[in-house]
C-alpha cells in the first residue's frame, strides 16, 4: 500500500479519500471514472482520433463489410466503447498505474500486417536519437499531452517530406531522377494499409499538352495471391526513382508532385483531406 500514500503525498491530504475511492476506478467503464479526477488528460485525449476509433463513418462502413467484424474492435475499442480508452494504454488499474514503456504499449495496435509503425520506428534515426512516440505525437507547450495528434490534425505534415530532382542525359536519352526524403519517426505513411503517399511525374510539351503521366504509390500493396508488400517510405534514408523521358514526346515542362492520402484507392479517387507534401516544376531546355 505504498503507492496510494505517495499519491496522497503529492496531491495533499484532502485528496486521500478521493484517491482511495479511485482504487475502485478501473478502465472497465471506458475511462469515464478517470475523467472525474483527470479532466485535463481526458479532454486532451478526447481530441485524438483514437478516442472515437470505433464510431467514425469510415470505420463503421468498412466494418460492415468485414469478414470477421469482431476482430476490428480488438484495436479500435478493446473495452467496447467509442474507441481506445484510458485503460487500453494504462492497464485496468487500480492506482498505482505502472509507468508506460513506449513503444511497447503502442505495439499491440500499431504493429500488424499493414501497420509497421512500431517496427520501422525501432529502425529510425528518431529512435536512435532517443525520441519516443509521444515526443512527436503527444506534446503541447513543451510537455506531454494526451491529444495524440495524427497526420490529419495540426501541422504534423508540414515539411514532413521533400523532393529533390535532376535531369541528366545518357546518349540521346534524358532521364529524370527524383528522390523523396521524409522526417517522420517511422515509415511513411505511418498507419495502415489504406494510407498512401503518391508520387506523380507529369510532363507537357510546348503546346501545353500532357505527354507523360506516371504515378507511384508508397504504402501497403497487395499482390494477386493476397500477400502484403511493404512499399512504405523508410525513415532516415531517401528513396530514388529514375525515369527515362519518352524522347519523341517533346516534353518541355515537368511537374513532380508528392501527395499524402488518407482514403484508399487510386490517386484519382476524391480525398478531401489529401495534402500536397511537396511539388516542383522543371523547365527543360
Amino acid at each position: 500500500m505504498s503507492r496510494p500514500r505517495s499519491i496522497a503525498d503529492r496531491a495533499g491530504p484532502a485528496i486521500v479519500a478521493l484517491a482511495l475511492a479511485s482504487l475502485q476506478a478501473t478502465a472497465a467503464d471506458g475511462g469515464k471514472g478517470c475523467a472525474d479526477c483527470h479532466p485535463r488528460q481526458a479532454a486532451a485525449f478526447e481530441r485524438s482520433a483514437m478516442a472515437r476509433a470505433a464510431v467514425t463513418p469510415a470505420f463503421t462502413a468498412e466494418r460492415a463489410d468485414a469478414a470477421d467484424p469482431r476482430r476490428c474492435l480488438r484495436c479500435h475499442a478493446p473495452g467496447g466503447g467509442r474507441g481506445v480508452a484510458c485503460g487500453d494504454c494504462h492497464g485496468s488499474g487500480p492506482h498505482p498505474f505502472p509507468p508506460l514503456e513506449q513503444p511497447a504499449v503502442c505495439a499491440r495496435c500499431h504493429d500488424a500486417p499493414g501497420e509497421n509503425t512500431v517496427r520501422s520506428f525501432l529502425d529510425s534515426p528518431a529512435f536512435a536519437a532517443g525520441l519516443r512516440c509521444s515526443d512527436c505525437h503527444a506534446v503541447a507547450d513543451g510537455g506531454f499531452n494526451h491529444h495524440f495528434r495524427g497526420a490529419r490534425s495540426g501541422d504534423l505534415l508540414r515539411d514532413a517530406a521533400t523532393l529533390r530532382a535532376f535531369l541528366r542525359s545518357e546518349g540521346d536519352r534524358t532521364l529524370a531522377t527524383v528522390t523523396i526524403r521524409h522526417r517522420a519517426g517511422h515509415a511513411m505513411p505511418g498507419g495502415t494499409t489504406g494510407r498512401a503517399v503518391w508520387l506523380r511525374i507529369s510532363g507537357r510539351d510546348e503546346g501545353g499538352r500532357e505527354r507523360l503521366d506516371r504515378r507511384w504509390r508508397f504504402g501497403w500493396n497487395r499482390d494477386r495471391e493476397g500477400r502484403w508488400h511493404d512499399r512504405t517510405l523508410p525513415p532516415g534514408r531517401p528513396v530514388a526513382i529514375e525515369l527515362p523521358l519518352p524522347s519523341a514526346a517533346g516534353i518541355r515542362h515537368l511537374t513532380i508532385e508528392l501527395t499524402y492520402r488518407f482514403r484508399p484507392g487510386p490517386l484519382d479517387t476524391p480525398d478531401p483531406d489529401a495534402v500536397i507534401l511537396d511539388r516542383m516544376e522543371i523547365e527543360l531546355p
Partner: peptide
C-alpha cells in the same frame, strides 16, 4: 503487379 487496398485497414492480424 499489385492491388491497391480498397479498405483502410485490411491487415488486421497482429504480425
Amino acid at each position: 503487379p499489385f492491388i491497391i487496398p480498397r479498405g483502410l485497414c485490411e491487415g488486421d492480424e497482429p504480425a
